[in-house]
Design a protein around this nucleic acid. Structure first.
Length: 203
DNA sequence: TGCCAGGCCCTCTTTAGGGCCTT
């Protein structure tokens, strides 16, 4: 049976919280199936507000770059159509989820509730890591760096590789045969001290 | 072009505080 596909998503934004008026400036989605990234979507978008200088420096996305980009609503409609009904994955998922849900709500679309988090999973599967930032985990696990960090497609692809590695390590380490998105949604909520037993019992 | 969060998780905890992680 082929592994179920998931959509790994990453936003670049004008800031940390849509409740402050922050909007996305770029989105990327990498569809992971089996051991490969099989499809991609990426677009800059015009957030309709200035990007703070420190954020421009962090992401490399400038006001000039988004000035001629399509508006957020256009890009988010395309992104939602691209994702379809696939279960979603992100690194520090609460951050991407709140932008995803806020922007889809503006369009009157229903967001998917299932959002797995590679940060929560990595804390459980790699407790020995010096920290659990995406870049640190990529280097620690010797996974491919996909491009400039803090650009959406590079981060989405790196999170995709991390997702595949976590999935494979859990399956091998604990002998879990069919660990799909639903299994990892449950695993990310299990207290760290109980992860071994949860995995050995098959979730 | 600055200021603003919030969920998770650990511990010198649980009537709390602070670090991590995302842009």
């Amino acid at each position: 049976m082929p592994t179920e596909p998931v959509a790994v998503i990453d936003f670049e934004t004008t800031g940390l919280n849509p409740a402050w008026g922050d909007r996305p400036t770029e989105v990327a989605i990498a569809v992971v199936q089996g051991d490969a990234i099989v499809d991609r979507y990426q677009s800059l978008m015009n957030p309709g507000r200035p990007i703070p200088h420190d954020v421009q420096q962090l992401t490399g996305i400038t006001d000039r770059m988004v000035a001629d980009a399509p508006p957020v609503a256009t890009v988010m409609r395309e992104a939602a159509r691209f994702v379809g009904g696939l279960p979603l994955v992100a690194h520090n998922a609460p951050f991407d989820r709140k932008f995803w849900e806020m922007e889809l709500a503006r369009l009157g679309e229903q967001p998917q509730p299932a959002f797995a988090c590679t940060l929560l999973l990595a804390r459980r599967v790699y407790p020995q890591a010096p920290n659990h930032r995406l870049g640190t985990l990529i280097d620690l696990l010797r996974l491919p760096r996909a491009g400039r960090a803090h650009r959406a497609m590079a981060d989405a692809e790196m999170a995709g590789h991390l997702w595949m590695r976590i999935r494979d390590d859990v399956r091998q380490r604990f002998g879990v045969r069919e660990a799909g998105h639903g299994f990892f949604m449950r695993l990310q909520k299990v207290p760290k001290a109980k992860v071994d037993r949860f995995c050995r019992d098959g979730g």
